[in-house]
Design a protein around this nucleic acid. Sequence first.
DNA 1: CCCAGTTACACAAACGTTTGCGCAGTCATG
DNA 2: CATGACTGCGCAAACGTTTGTGTAACTGGG
Lengths: 344, 344
Amino acid sequence: MKVTIKRIAEILKVNPSTVSRALRGKPGVSEELRNKILRTAEELGYYPDTRARSLKEGSTRTIGILIPDMGNPFFANAVAAMERVLFPMGYSFFLCVTEEDNEKERINLQKLLSYNVDGILAAPVDRIKNIKLYKQIQSKGIPLVFFDRRIVDLKVPYAVTDNRDGVYKLMDYLKKMGHESLGIITLHRESYTGMERLNAAIERAKELGMEVRENWIKDGKSTQRGAYEAAKELFKERKLPTALFVCNNVMTLGVMKALKELSISVPDSISLVTFDDSFWNQIFDPPVTCVAQDPMQLGMIAATMLLNSIKYPDQQEQDGVILKTHFIERYSVKNLLITTNGEG
Amino acid sequence: MKVTIKRIAEILKVNPSTVSRALRGKPGVSEELRNKILRTAEELGYYPDTRARSLKEGSTRTIGILIPDMGNPFFANAVAAMERVLFPMGYSFFLCVTEEDNEKERINLQKLLSYNVDGILAAPVDRIKNIKLYKQIQSKGIPLVFFDRRIVDLKVPYAVTDNRDGVYKLMDYLKKMGHESLGIITLHRESYTGMERLNAAIERAKELGMEVRENWIKDGKSTQRGAYEAAKELFKERKLPTALFVCNNVMTLGVMKALKELSISVPDSISLVTFDDSFWNQIFDPPVTCVAQDPMQLGMIAATMLLNSIKYPDQQEQDGVILKTHFIERYSVKNLLITTNGEG
DNA sequence: CCCAGTTACACAAACGTTTGCGCAGTCATG
DNA sequence: CATGACTGCGCAAACGTTTGTGTAACTGGG
């Protein structure tokens, strides 16, 4: 038998409204009765039913967080940061994991709509499939902030990394080190991030006169396993590029594993640069040169933007925040200019 | 203006009950009217209000997941596994992060009670502070499963790793390699895991005749940063042990960082073994010898146990699952027997 | 043509809260 | 002692659902 306000009211032979007022500390109930009510509530182990309360009051004080992958420390840390911002404000969290699957994303978004969350933080799967659902969320006036990825067609506030700029830094560096050919292990291509990084890499590389063959571009599917297989595929090619660009952190693990199995040494046989800097990049042998983005910062900013959207629902200005990456030079890229000189 | 069943009923000039039956596919409404209702629901963007529904029906189809740290891949992966088991069953998730803080744990547990979750998966902070709350959860008949950590005083189903056995494997190995002295970087000591591993290590080491000085045991507080500082402290000591046992995965990162900064080489200057095997253990230089537990498996099992508790609420039998660790020998422990022979 | 059975809908109560309003009783003021 | 203000509580409606029951209208069989 559940302990409710009604139940307490019955026991104490008072009206439920009085119990409610007593528990919420509202005026209109004598000190004596209030104490008696508080005591029995404590004794019986009463907890207010948020469903009923929020039904009456409107707000649920919950936030939906939608990410593609729990196992990726990038997202795990972003979520951690969001929690740190939002928890002190009294919010709880619905965690939704899409696994890059449109169908799972759809179901989760519909659930969030049904749960009447106060806001949504989402890293959407792709730019097409569930756009209608996101539009619906928007048109219902539910505060929504994209992070890491966005849907460009939608006028929704976002916090993302400047992928293009980050990739340019890497490409320019490779060129500077004398590399003239490039392979790429891509994210799954439907995603915003996937597109951005791939296109930027190809464009910049070509601008710099580097060769990027079609069959040097392999789909890593955003996962460790996918990247592992992609790398294995790549190294079956007769002619190989001198440098390899891996589009995110977890895929780097897969590529590394493949390299180890094939006994291909970095940077002697091939040079390596990556997007993202997880701890393992520093402790690889050799440490991997990369552009870093800070998932905690991203999460914090996204959460703060959401809070703002919740507070000022009509504000349309805050279009988006674009974070710059931080270039970190380590030892995974060979300087071909020096080497060839030495050999010549 | 929110679109509700009532609203649809008004527009179509029918009774809300009819709309409800139509939407839920229940009998008693003509094909023609049903279609009309479905169409307008679709047009208006209707989503059922789960608060109201669950208020009526009882079950919320939500699960509370409580973990200490989002940034720890161990827990992130455990959560990922739980999601994979529970999502197909139609459950949603309240994510609660305690950061090893009793107060945060209390608030979160109270929220879960207020949210009327159908079940709770928890890795509790410690064995004392919120025991009353856990008891309350239990006595209210809310299915509860502990994972990774448990509160021994409570008769609650659990899925944990055999910490003692794991630690024994490591100690026995160290002894076999000729080590006679041991340092320990501990978890925060109030936790179940913290206690288990520390006690087991001290006991076994002493049994084997190894020296474990008080000031070789440093509190790493379960975090990377804490372990970093603890390691720095440890290496201030005049006399050092030949081997160091780090009690979990993220702390290993902190210790490694400290070792690097202090230019202490592994395993030449000191040998290293750890509990847990995250990816970085394999790619450290040298790769780290450890006992591994599989967080995915742990999460899966815990989630399955919870499902069982939900399905058969009265079943008291399923006391707990204890998973064995897997010993992985790598290159972070020096064989003192061979070396001393060589030198002598 | 009557009755039983079926169909298609309306009505109302309930889930657990919150809150505006009403209404006695108390107290002070004039 | 009448008036007004205040205090302390009960009453009832509402949030959005679901579901048991009631009830017309229609069907077909005898």
